[in-house]
Design a protein around this nucleic acid. Sequence first.
DNA 1: GTTTGACAGTTCAAAAAAAGAACTGTAAAT
DNA 2: ATTTACAGTTCTTTTTTTGAACTGTCAAAC
Lengths: 170, 170
Amino acid sequence: MKWKELEEEPCSMARTIGVIGDRWTLLILRECFLRTRRFEGFQSALGITRHLLAERLKKLVRQGILRRVPYQESPKRHEYILTQKGLDLYPIMMAIVHWGDTHMVDVRGRPLLHQHRNCGKDFDPVMVCSECGEPVLAKEVHTHPGPGASRPLAQKEAPAPKPKARRKAA
Amino acid sequence: MKWKELEEEPCSMARTIGVIGDRWTLLILRECFLRTRRFEGFQSALGITRHLLAERLKKLVRQGILRRVPYQESPKRHEYILTQKGLDLYPIMMAIVHWGDTHMVDVRGRPLLHQHRNCGKDFDPVMVCSECGEPVLAKEVHTHPGPGASRPLAQKEAPAPKPKARRKAA
DNA sequence: GTTTGACAGTTCAAAAAAAGAACTGTAAAT
DNA sequence: ATTTACAGTTCTTTTTTTGAACTGTCAAAC
């Protein structure tokens, strides 16, 4: 499977992964949310090679996640700013950070805290159901094909312990 | 920057990316949540090379995201099951799917719908504040160093338009 | 008025990772 | 005796990524 194919699969997850699903892209986006805007800023904050950085920024611009905005003429210089589409990635970023806060911190605790200006408190992101407002657990979700499903792609697996004379069971 | 270093950075996002931040790992996890459990299942659903699949599964087991559970003796066979740590990735997966549903669908609509058993309705995931319960927007969040912050890593950038006789502005 | 530095890249060889295909091995089914 | 299911491993080729240097414009410092 090549990257182009990913973006054409009938799966919102595959398509999204095709766009932002690599290590450098995710780190670049982290920097964007921390207000980094310029080439040198990304480069020195991340230690990414300039070559790859240029490539990834181009891709993010092509995808409409960043906008390349000039901030001075001659030498032309641009800043990379999150578009609305890019800002919409925020829940993904927060979910990633939150998992790390839960499962990857050392004894010292979390490196970064997030304060919600609305209520003034440090918070964690919680995923709730848009319909009933309750927190959503994986077990409580049933997944089924929508209008854009061509190949099923879901549930294709798990032929269910076909009990047709199996081998010596464990 | 190599992958090992990523996992040691004082940043929950970098650490998480070090574990799940590559394309195949994310797709493997998608399959896990769709109830795929076996080597061949992953391989045929994803078209990943067997070599990489073996490697990624090993890594996920090492990280405690999957558990390798025997389901038959001689030929020893195992299933890969999400641990609680793995199940906790669900909000990340849902956030990714939701972004794709919002920004990457074609005319036909979403490939997959998610039904919340609690309320019976098809839903979207919404990220809310653990403290006040309101939806969280990127703009409303202030980020500040926590106990585990050694190097700042945040806000290191943006020296703020230092107005010290700038070049010919655009 | 020459040098230095900031900035935003591009170029190219070398190293690392991934793809592709075939091979190993156990055991049941045909 | 052969085929099939399953879970890998091995090996070669291709693609990506790294690392380091180079290009080019301009401002400021010397």
